[in-house]
Amino acid sequence: MIRIESLQKSFQGSPVLRGVDFEIHDGETVVIIGQSGGGKSVLLKHLCGLLKPETGHVWVDDEDIVPLNERRLAPIRRKFGFLFQGAALFDSLTLFDNVAFPLREKRSLRETEVAQRVEEALEIVGLTGAGHKKPAELSGGMRKRAGLARAVVGTPKYLLYDEPTTGLDPIRADTINHLILRLRDRLRVTGVAVTHDMASAYKIADRIAMLHEGRIHAVGTPAEIQASPDPLVQQFIRGVADISQEVPSGNTTLH
């Protein structure tokens, strides 16, 4: 379980998180939605200690990780898999070595076991046989899937997905959605995904939380969120711009 308690974070004096309180239960997949630049990535990075808040706590399995230094965080971070927004594959390594990286860093597995688990992970994401390629040779969708393989290869308890489907065509995006669901159902992974892709959110979420102006503004199941009477929620999920900026109704060709 991950518990976030009155988390506050600002950059150069401008607040991004203004007191986030939230709980993520074991086995569920939570999707955090919110505007671009609203602090979703920042929130995600606090969950495994990549960023430190000014105030507040992050409890991971009943341990507050906020006061821990990098060395003490290392074992906790191994419970996590992180899919970064741009996949963040290491340019200098082949795909195979990228996926093998977290396993080799543990230094407890033999190379034959590493190879076997890397092949399995590549198979899950549908990249069998692409292990020798360098990240630069891959398309955006393939990079995301490779990043996912690297995130899951160590069989983490928690998976953090930063915009897993953004920038992909609808079919590739759906492949990723299916992968996320499969990981939850087959490996019992607890997932936290950040996105502004509502189709994806409805598909993968057990619960959806909306981050607005640095706080969790609304939480609920996809059905509850869809039925929410809250104007801010409705505005966001239906993708309507501010009423004042809406295109005049006579100009329908622009829609």
Binding site: R77, Q85, L89, F90
Partner: peptide, 18 residues
Amino acid sequence: GTMKVTEQLDALRSMGTS
């Protein structure tokens, strides 16, 4: 620097490697 801005440094740290 490129690794920093493409989050590769964060990726390293997220895997427990300094």
